[in-house]
Design a protein around this nucleic acid. Structure first.
Length: 322
RNA sequence: GGCCACGUGGCGAAGUGGGAACGCAGGGGUCUGCAAAACCUCGAUGAGCCGGUUCAAUCCCGGCCGUGGCCU
């Protein structure tokens, strides 16, 4: 029997974090944040990371499993353990595959301790690697090869790729250079066409997905409020600190909030404009997230105004064996 | 009151006598190692209003309305 796992998904600012904590409390759970930006240390305000405290892990003394994964500390938010946060520094590379490995270990660890893993996050692709057990670990990236490929034009790259993997050439987003480069990279590195890797693995967990959405107007209001709060809590100082330490060029700094404030700090925009841009880009991001989640029929949708009890009721109705 | 300029999709903004660039916002979408990323796609049958010239006007002419500026 597969372990039960709950996943709370939805657009940014829909209230996933709060719901995750509530469910964790009543269901003896622990939260794993599935968020491609909260993995960075020092990026707290701009990623809307929950406020909590690091404590010596209460699990350490008992389980060797924690020593194995180096989990010496636990991040507690309102008493609920949170994982998936502060995994790397902003200048370190990290991928969906890295996170999948981490998350699986973490889920198994939580299950082994008899608790319920609750995946909370808006990074749909990362969630998908876990829920659908995508096999991308077999083909690590090769930055040198990638850099070399990127010097060619999209047209040339696609042409070459089509020769090597005609099947994949039909599937791929042929106008997206990043995708074509990766497909070519996989194909060249493994000697196996990229298209052959496009399979959904066997499900590892019995995942119950709760989608949290809100009417557009409401979501826009929540986003605006949240951005204002970030500024009030010191977003500019946070970005300044990161800029001094890592510059504005690294991947981590391309995130919403960071890139716009970087522009302000380097003098190319006014703060008020930067803030408006953060709001605007967050709206666009939320829309993309909805596009992603909408097409997964397994998600049970609820509203932020629904009570946890109502949500769990909906939930149990759809999943008779919690 | 007189003179001048302008009046193009939600906003900004080009251009042309032959049937309206582009940017932003907005909508829709893609997604198997950068995913808060990257990428694709859709919006004015209509150019303040009314006449006129012309085979043909958003673009030329006149009037009106509106906006801004200048002048007395």
């Amino acid at each position: 029997m597969k372990p039960k796992v709950i996943a709370i998904v939805g657009p940014t600012a829909s209230g996933k974090t709060g719901l995750g904590i509530e469910i964790a409390k009543s269901w003896n759970g622990e939260v794993i944040c599935v968020d491609s930006r909260q993995v960075y240390r020092g990026m707290d305000i701009g990623t809307a990371k929950s406020e909590g405290i690091w404590v010596e892990s209460e699990f350490e003394k008992g389980g060797s499993i924690n020593q194995l994964f180096g989990a010496r500390k636990t991040f507690l938010v309102d008493g609920v353990p949170h994982w998936g946060i502060d995994l790397i520094d902003p200048n370190e590379p990290y991928s969906a595959a890295d996170f999948k490995t981490y998350a699986i270990e973490k889920i198994d660890d939580i299950v082994a301790r008899g608790r319920l893993p609750i995946l909370v996050g808006g990074t749909g692709f990362w969630l998908k690697t876990i829920i659908d057990n995508l096999d991308l670990t077999a083909t690590p990236g090769d930055s040198a090869l990638r850099a070399q490929l990127e010097t060619h034009t999209l047209g040339d790259l696609f042409h070459e790729y089509k020769q090597l993997d005609p099947e994949g050439a039909e599937l791929i987003d042929k106008k997206n250079k990043r995708r074509v480069v990766r497909a070519l990279e996989v194909t060249k590195l493994t000697g196996r066409p990229w298209s052959h890797f496009q399979v959904v693995g066997e499900q590892m967990y019995d995942v119950l997905q709760i989608g949290l959405s809100a009417p557009r107007e409401e979501l826009v209001g929540r986003i605006d409020t949240r951005v204002e709060e970030m500024v009030a809590r010191g977003l500019v100082d946070e970005v300044r600190r990161l800029k001094d330490a890592y510059g504005c060029e690294c991947e981590a700094m391309t995130g919403i909030g960071y890139r716009q404030v970087c522009a302000f700090l380097s003098g190319s925009t006014k703060l008020s404009e930067a803030i408006e841009e953060v709001k605007r880009d967050t709206r666009a991001y939320a829309k993309r997230q909805m596009t992603w989640f909408k097409r997964d029929p397994r998600i049970v949708w609820v509203q932020p105004s629904d009570s946890t009890d109502q949500i769990m009721e909906t939930f149990l109705k759809n999943n008779p064996t919690p």
